[in-house]
């Protein structure tokens, strides 16, 4: 009922060790948002049906609405707040911004992290591999196309290529 005594865990969040106390029935989603102030992680259903709350758990994208906070002790959690470093955006953040892959921006952190995990294991994914990897994240604004293009562009840049958006993707056919 929210008045039970709190539990404390130690884990790593965005590369920094953190200790946090919270009601023991809380999900990682709630711990991040409410007890650590990391509201970049969003939620759309709390039942594992939309992908909006995706975070990285030991580098793997998972649904933070279905991971118990207590189960994260000793693990490494990555959120959207950890993607940029030293004031510099991650290449995916750059391309999502440039291509308009974030419209309302609500599902965006989840797509970014899922894409980040994809590129970590597959630096040159095909369009179909991108679609498969992102098939657990719902977006209602973009129709996903700008998201695919942003992932492809960031992947190329992360491979060291000097890629730019195509004219067609920004101005139409």
């Amino acid at each position: 009922m929210g008045n039970e005594s709190k539990a404390m865990i130690a884990f790593t969040v965005n590369g920094e060790s953190a200790e946090v106390a919270f009601a023991p029935h809380k999900m990682l989603l709630e711990v991040l948002r409410e007890d650590l102030g990391l509201t970049g992680t969003k939620h759309g259903c709390e039942l594992g049906e939309c992908g909006t709350c995706t975070v990285l758990l030991d580098g793997t994208p998972v649904l933070s609405c279905l991971v118990l906070g207590l189960a994260c002790a000793g693990h490494d959690v990555g959120t959207v707040e950890g993607m940029a470093s030293a004031g510099k955006l991650h290449p995916l953040q750059e391309t999502f911004a440039d291509l308009g892959a974030a419209q309302c921006g609500y599902c965006t952190p989840a797509f970014l992290l899922t894409a980040q995990a994809l590129l970590a294991g597959n630096p040159q994914p095909t369009r179909d591999e991108i679609k498969d990897a992102l098939a657990g994240n719902l977006c209602r604004c973009t129709g996903y196309i700008k998201i695919y293009e942003a992932v492809e562009l960031a992947a190329a840049r992360m491979r060291g290529e000097s890629a730019e958006p195509t004219r067609e993707s920004l101005y139409g056919a």
């Binding site: 959207v80 993607m83 974030a102 309302c104």
Partner: peptide, 14 residues
């Protein structure tokens, strides 16, 4: 074609 003025806030979760 320009970035939206709030694009960086959206992609950083802020």
């Amino acid at each position: 074609a320009l970035r939206k003025i709030d694009a960086v806030a959206k992609v950083t979760g802020t």
